[in-house]
Design a protein around this nucleic acid. Structure first.
Lengths: 195, 195
DNA sequence: ACATTATCATACTGATTAGTATGGTGCAAA
DNA sequence: TTTGCACCATACTAATCAGTATGATAATGT
């Protein structure tokens, strides 16, 4: 990795930390630079604006933070219920960078930015569509294997699972980590109700 | 209503509009005053700080915006599934002030403020606890009427329903109003799976 | 009628914001 | 060797922020 790439990465890494904890709008560029060795000149050399940096963050960092956990679970076992359970559980519990207090950066950004910035919304929508598609494929495999009735619409279930994830990430901010366990039990019951 | 009360109400009303659409931190006091006849002196006479105004907003306005829809549904019919379905549906569709694009103000505030402001978190938590309790009572009634097995923990189901609401409000910001219909079908299937 | 206080209005402050202007440095191609 | 550009550093700007200082006016009790 070249020196320039290292600078770019350092900016995105620090920006991710601050935006994850304080939100995009509340995170200033000065604050990002404060605790790094990067200067404002370097920042605006790599990103033509704060918005541009934010969009890069969605594509580069968030994707690399969440996507591995997802693909690791889907298709891992032959039982789609096991896989969908593990996927959400690992996203909630196993990921070392994400905490209950601050939730999920992708979910947070949708909340904050989707209504007020079209570019953010589009990038986040694309991200969600990829996740949805991956879950759909899992469900279709289950239907082809006879584990699940074809009466179920794969898209409906996929989006419902994502909806639950968004919901529990928000609830966790208020109720704390103990709710994750409560939620996972009821989530599992939901998965078992899919026949 | 006295003149002073009218001023206070006008501030809270305008603040609600702006915070609902842009978030708490992105809403400035100057912006609140801009399109009203209220001045900064009046603002700081009624609220000792922006934070104080925000806390008032949770207790006063949000509660009055959402709570009526909730109590109207719960206990309305003898079937708890019908009531829980109607509650969420009305929150999503029937409420005239809330839109799909901007979601639910209470959910939004949890996302933005719960991790970074203890007073907000506490006020929002109290709000959620009241909702949870109301749903729990609906579920206990159903169990006493023999509509639902007592194996189900009322708190678990109540929180799961709230979780779904939080989730769908976030998803709607990206997927648009059409998803509400898709969600409601799967939500109904979930309610029917409670036996 | 008078005093007191509630309710506001105006003008300010210092801090912070995103972004710019300008110049410097090192490396790569010519 | 020189030219040019990628990469970065420093110092600035105009706008905006929450909050304050100070005084005016209106309501209210005595």
């Amino acid at each position: 990795m070249s020196k320039a790439d290292a600078t770019r990465t350092e900016i995105l890494k620090k920006a991710f930390d601050l935006i994850y904890k304080n939100g995009y709008q509340a995170t200033s560029i000065d604050h990002i630079l404060e605790t790094t060795s990067v200067t404002k000149g370097a920042f605006y050399h790599h990103f033509k604006s704060k918005e541009e940096m934010g969009i890069s963050l969605i594509d580069d960092v968030i994707k690399k933070e969440i996507w591995p956990t997802i693909v690791k679970s889907l298709g891992a076992s032959k039982n789609f219920r096991t896989n969908l359970y593990k996927m959400i559980k690992d996203l909630l519990i196993a990921n070392p960078t994400l905490t209950c207090e601050y939730g999920c950066p992708a979910v947070n950004l949708i909340h904050e930015m989707a209504p007020i910035n079209e570019r953010f919304k589009k990038a986040l929508k694309k991200n969600m569509a990829e996740w949805r598609k991956a879950i759909e494929e899992e469900i279709i495999r289950a239907q082809e294997a006879g584990q699940l009735s074809t009466d179920h619409e794969p898209e409906t279930i996929a989006l419902h699972v994502i909806t639950l994830y968004h919901g529990v990430r928000n609830m966790g901010k208020v109720l704390g980590k103990s709710y994750y366990a409560t939620f996972l039990k009821e989530y599992n019951r939901y998965l078992q109700s899919l026949q």
